[in-house]
């Protein structure tokens, strides 16, 4: 089961018991939720290929007292209607659960138009958003279930890239302890980070929630190891660098940020693994970067 499948089945269960929930779509994934739409025709809304309206409708639903869950590809959910996210939700003082799929380059063959490595950085420019980056469908389901009650603003970033096992926990979880530094693996980056650092004496932290940023967890890990931090994020490199700087603002530290490269647009097709290599986010690329940073 993919994260998208987990999303559809979880919404089916949740909408059956919570009459506040409304699911808003813009043609993407409509086929996956047909049965839900048949059961709740007034609460599953497909606006067609109209992404500004997708988010505007979510804002209106929230203003009327409903709890909107909004879904399409990340590029069309965050980038194209970004002003609607900023104004129709945040500025109105209402929340929504935005659930994207496609991530940075899940649609590796589709080219730049369907790739959204800047989504978390964009959401990070707005106040008050929780950002979840699950690494496994079971995590996606758990994080979605946590997000549905209340009125908070949540961005849930689904991906085809997954780890072998889910890690259900709160805050940054230490999966390995070492003395030479701390490697923070976000969501789908975990398995390759564990493999890349298998022979290194480093602490590996895992995060499926990046906003709020678990500053206390990072500080504790650094205090028990060394103030050499490597961020490994599946979106734009350095998206969380400012959070690391704030978390360690009273500790001399070094930081290396790995992620989707900022210096140029990678104009290739091919598979996700090809893009991993192009961005240095494959196991070998991560291993080389961490070793170079730690001088080992």
């Amino acid at each position: 089961m993919s994260m998208r499948d987990a999303f559809a089945s979880t919404m089916d269960e949740a909408m059956a018991v919570d009459p506040r929930l409304a699911l808003v779509l813009a043609d993407i994934s409509v086929d996956r939720v047909r049965p839900v739409q048949r059961r709740h025709p007034n609460r599953v809304i497909n606006v067609g290929i109209r992404e500004q309206l997708l988010v505007g409708v979510a804002g209106g639903l929230a203003l009327s007292g409903m709890r909107p869950v909004v879904h399409t590809f990340a590029s069309f959910l965050v980038e194209r209607p970004f002003e609607q996210v900023k104004l129709d939700l945040g500025h109105q003082g209402v929340g929504a659960v935005l659930v994207s799929s496609g991530a940075s380059y899940d649609m590796s063959y589709a080219g730049r138009t369907h790739q959204s490595p800047g989504d978390v950085a964009l959401m990070d420019s707005l106040p008050g958003w929780t950002v979840h980056v699950p690494g496994h469908p079971a995590e996606a389901r758990r994080l979605l279930c946590e997000s549905l009650p209340g009125d908070s603003s949540v961005y849930l970033r689904l991906s085809e890239a997954v780890n072998a096992e889910p890690f259900i926990g709160v805050g940054f979880q230490a999966l390995r302890r070492g003395s030479a530094g701390v490697v923070l693996a976000v969501g789908p980056m975990l398995d390759r980070v564990l493999a890349a650092t298998a022979t290194l004496d480093v602490t590996v932290l895992y995060a499926s929630t990046v906003r709020p940023f678990d500053a206390a967890g990072l500080r504790a890990a650094v205090d028990a190891s060394s103030a050499n931090v490597v961020l490994v994020e599946p979106y734009l490199a350095g998206t969380s660098a400012h959070q690391v700087a704030e978390a360690l603002d009273d500790r001399p530290h070094r930081l290396r940020s790995l992620g989707v490269r900022r210096d140029r647009e990678v104009r290739i097709y091919g598979g996700m693994a090809d893009h991993d290599v192009a961005h240095g986010l494959d196991e070998q690329g991560i291993a080389a970067s961490v070793r170079a940073f730690l001088g080992r």
Binding site: P19, A22, N42, R43, I45, Q52, L53, V55, G56, V57, A58, G59, G60, L61, A62, L63, S64, G65, M66, P68, Q84, D88, Q92
Partner: peptide, 14 residues
């Protein structure tokens, strides 16, 4: 207009 349509959907559902 987009916000208004969302409100209409929300009121209809309620």
């Amino acid at each position: 207009l987009g916000l208004a349509i969302g409100e209409v959907y929300g009121l209809r559902a309620q």
